[in-house]
Design a protein around this nucleic acid. Structure first.
Length: 825
RNA sequence: GCGGGCGUGGCGGAAUGGCAGACGCACCAGACUUAGGAUCUGGCGGGAAACCGUGGAGGUUCAAGUCCUCUCGCCCGCACCA
């Protein structure tokens, strides 16, 4: 008999037990339904924070619950271990990124293990290990072979102080996240993945993702940004060049009074050449160059521009309109050029006002009171066409179609779909990433590294000084190579891949973690994939989740896997807050999981974090709340210690037919709790209410202590179930108490209990009597009493009689076993 | 500006249209104790009560935290996307 609950001792004991007996090791088993539970793998920063604990605690409840319900569960863990922080550590402290990373992984793995999560550690992966990044490179080659990886010159984020390129995600509000210097754009040759080829499918298949939060689907939909319209070309006066524009409002094409090009548009210098405006145009382009990209794309920026001196011909009416350049037109959307319709576009309207350009109304509102003669703002609403030649009188919708049809018939333009989504820039001028497996041969040009030569290994001896180029550029043994095709001296690509590439396919690798020649075995992947439940922070709503979807579709297309989507169900967990804001070092409000575990144990930490709030919502950290969960576990401990002797020797089985009312009440509570906890986990992931139901059962058991003639078999039933129900949340204490109450095998191997519907049928229920919707009285009646009987009981009730005396009863509403509502006048 | 979410006791949070505040924390009182920051018991939205209470104003309904309309506040995402 143990007197005191000592979490650290029993947690170590059971973690060792699970470890030694390969408890959570999984393999394919066609006889059982599979369940793939996955939490987003962490970057190994070196210490676990509360957000991780929350993420993995949620995942563990689901994984354990499913396993106990007969599923063959895959629940792996690994490390997203390439990336900038390791290299920064190298620059700052002179530690090699590999050494830094691997020691962080060791440290974090130790911390993770103290949480008692049911991981199959045999499947652990680290994206920075050659046996993993070999296949990240394999993915690159497959994409390249299929025309989905290409190189082009592009403007990238450049920090002038650090002298290096930054990933988009390392740019925070237009500044470098490390030194807070304003980020510039710099043109460099870069590798891209053609995710835009998949834009429509990425958009369409969102419909299939019923298990995803709408919020995330909406964010992806907006990010993809599909818009329908048409693209058409205009002749430029005195030039052979054509000017192509994209518009979603072809119905307003008769309202075009000028054209606008982005200042970077290649046609600008051509058309301005030799005009009196040439100097002004050059000056304006120079001016725009000095405005940062962030300010450039801000709606607050004042719209400015300059006339190019050239004119375009509107193909619909032959009208000559001036071509301007302006800061509000962006080169990287559409064609980098627009037709300006100031009467029906607010931006064009403001610009036209400022530069005294004509405004011509071509859409009239259907609302006759809406006299829009003196336009104060652009009119973007519905209506019918005017001033539009043969098209007058058509509605906006009809007009769009008819104009496009006309353009197509006359070879002016055609219907087009435009996406906001851009191709994915994957080059990084950094060391600590997967090298891009390409070779540049003076004879053969760019040549992919043959599959059999993978991996292209990262060299170890590298100087990390900041130069603005990849450190690999200075490692001769790395870049000097021979062409795989012709054998002549060639140079390796020295850029490495964005770490999002590594995390776009890792969930497949867990299915075949040790496979040598292929990223995964199709049979194994097709057994496990798709992930049944994916859990992580909402900050990955777009980037990671979109890239992973893209990779999955690509792998489907090349017949490597059978699923079109990687994650059937997605749970986006809320943040862990302290004093109302996100835990961060700079705010000094960080609570370390290590400290909490040391003090209270992992069971308490897990329980608190699951109890304090439903998983999707933000969670406010409370030291006192933790204390409360610790007290609860102590109460459970004592409860079992006190009751154990009672049923230790008594193996009599429970006779449910002869329960006294007090026992029946406890018996009811046991089954009601099984039902509630099962439903809360299974249907809604509402762990907080599941835990509170378990607390209620424990409270019932506690008050049962006062009962004189206790029923040992009933207590045993209650305690067994209590421990099983609590075990996914706080597994160690439950294993320990399970063993102490005489069970031979692990509680994890217990089947999840089923509630007995008969146990939930009570003899008597409490009902409420309302008068006109207000509760006036409570009565106890036999369950399922007849409506007429209930009405009579209510009307005969003295309190109700007094209140209804002399009033007319309009009607009586009876909700079975709940309430009787007497409506009076 | 557009899109999404959230407003319930002192706090975290519960409530298939059917008893608002489950469960926990904090607090108060009592018990046990040399002691209590341990444990146990009880209380705990406001109000003396009738009653009043889910950000605010209307509405639907026998019945609204829940449904509808308007409105205020906070949080998150996107933001000159043609």
């Amino acid at each position: 008999m143990e007197l005191k609950y000592e979490p650290n001792r029993i947690e170590r004991k059971w973690q060792e037990y699970w470890d030694k007996n390969n408890f959570y090791k999984t393999s394919e088993d066609p006889s059982k339904p599979k369940y793939y539970a996955l939490e987003m793998f962490p970057y190994p920063s070196g210490n676990l924070h509360m957000g991780h604990v929350r993420n993995y605690a949620i995942g563990d409840v689901i994984a354990r619950y499913k396993a106990m319900n007969g599923f063959n569960v895959l629940h792996p863990m690994g490390w997203d271990s390439f990336g900038l922080p390791a290299e920064n550590a190298a620059i700052k402290h002179g530690i090699h990124p590999a050494k830094w990373t691997f020691s962080n992984i060791d440290a974090m793995k130790q911390q993770l293990k103290t949480l008692g999560i049911s991981y199959d550690w045999d499947r652990e992966i680290a994206t920075c290990r050659p046996d993993y990044y070999k296949f990240t490179q394999w993915m690159f080659l497959k994409l390249y072979d299929n025309g989905l990886a290409y190189k082009k010159s592009a403007a990238v984020n450049w920090c002038p102080s650090c002298q290096t390129v930054l990933a988009n995600e390392q740019v925070v509000e237009g500044a470098c996240e490390r030194c807070e210097t304003k980020v510039d754009k710099k043109k460099l040759e870069q590798w891209f993945f053609k995710i835009t080829d998949y834009a429509q499918r990425l958009l369409d298949d969102l419909e299939q993702l019923e298990g995803w939060p709408d919020k995330v689907k909406i964010m992806q939909r907006n990010w993809i940004g599909r818009s329908e319209g048409c693209q058409f070309s205009m002749a430029i006066e005195g030039s052979d060049e054509m000017l192509t524009v994209f518009t979603t409002r072809p119905d307003t094409v008769y309202g075009v009074t000028y054209m606008v090009l982005a200042p970077e548009h290649p046609l600008v210098s051509v058309i301005a050449k030799g005009t009196p405006q040439e100097e002004a145009v050059k000056a304006f382009i120079n001016e725009v160059k000095f405005i940062s990209d962030v300010d450039r794309s801000s709606a607050d920026l004042e719209k400015t521009g300059v006339f190019t001196g050239a004119y375009a011909i509107n193909p619909m009416n032959g009208e000559k309109v001036p071509i301007w350049i302006a800061n509000y037109v962006l080169m990287d959307y559409g064609t980098g050029a627009i037709m300006a319709v100031p009467a029906h576009d607010q931006r064009d309207f403001e610009f036209a006002r400022k530069y005294n350009l004509p405004i011509r109304q071509v859409i009239k509102s259907n609302d006759p009171t809406d006299e829009n003669n003196q336009l104060e703002t652009a009119y973007a609403g519905d209506g019918y066409m005017i001033n539009s030649g043969d098209f007058d009188g058509l509605s906006v919708e009809e007009g769009k179609q008819k104009i496009i049809a006309y353009m197509e018939a006359n070879n002016i333009g055609s219907a087009t779909v435009n996406f906001r989504l851009r191709d994915w820039l994957i080059s990084r001028q950094r060391y600590w990433g997967a090298p891009i497996p390409m070779v540049y041969c003076p004879e053969c040009g760019p040549v992919p590294v043959p599959y059999e030569d993978l991996p292209v290994l990262l060299p170890e001896d590298v100087n990390f000084k900041i130069t603005g180029e990849s450190p690999l550029n200075y490692v001769e043994s790395f870049y000097k190579t021979n062409c795989p095709v012709c054998g002549s001296e060639a140079r390796r690509e020295t850029d490495t891949m964005d770490t999002f590439v590594c995390s776009s396919w890792y969930f497949n690798r867990y299915c075949s973690p040790d496979l040598k020649d292929m990223p995964f075995d199709p049979d194994q992947v097709n057994y496990w994939m798709p992930v049944d439940q994916y859990i992580g922070g909402v900050e990955h709503a777009i980037l990671h989740l979109m890239y992973a979807r893209f990779f999955t579709k690509f792998l489907y297309d090349i017949k490597m896997i059978n699923s079109l989507e990687p994650f059937s169900n997605l749970l986006t967990q809320g943040m862990v807050l302290k004093d109302g804001s996100k835990m961060s070092k700079s705010k000094g409000n960080v609570v370390s999981p290590e400290e909490i575990i040391k003090h209270y144990g992992a069971d308490t930490a897990r329980l608190f974090i699951l109890f304090a709030s439903p998983p999707e919502r933000d969670l406010e950290w409370s030291d006192q709340g933790v204390e409360g969960c610790y007290r609860f576990l102590n109460r459970i401990w004592r409860l079992v210690q006190d009751y154990a002797p009672l049923f230790a020797e008594d193996s009599e089985s429970l006779n449910t037919a002869s329960l006294n009312p007090r026992d029946k009440d406890l018996y009811y509570k046991v089954h009601a709790t099984i039902k509630k906890v099962s439903e809360d986990i299974q249907e809604r992931f509402n762990f907080n209410t599941a835990i509170s139901a378990i607390m209620e059962l424990s409270n019932h058991l506690n008050s049962y202590r006062e009962v004189q003639d206790k029923n040992p078999a009933l207590i045993k039933l209650a305690i067994d179930n209590l421990l099983i129900l609590l075990s996914p949340f706080s597994p160690h204490i439950c294993e320990e108490l399970w063993q102490q109450t005489g069970h031979q095998s692990s509680i994890y191997l217990q089947p999840w209990p089923r509630y007995n519907p008969d146990a939930l049928i009570l003899d008597e229920v409490e009902m409420v009597i309302q008068i006109s919707g207000k509760v006036k009285e409570r009565i106890k009646v036999p369950i399922n009493s007849a409506k007429e009987e209930l009405e009579q009981i209510a009307l005969d009730n003295p309190k109700i009689m007094a209140l209804t005396d002399g009033r007319e009863i309009v009607k009586i509403v009876v909700v079975p076993n709940k309430l009787i509502n007497i409506v009076i006048k």
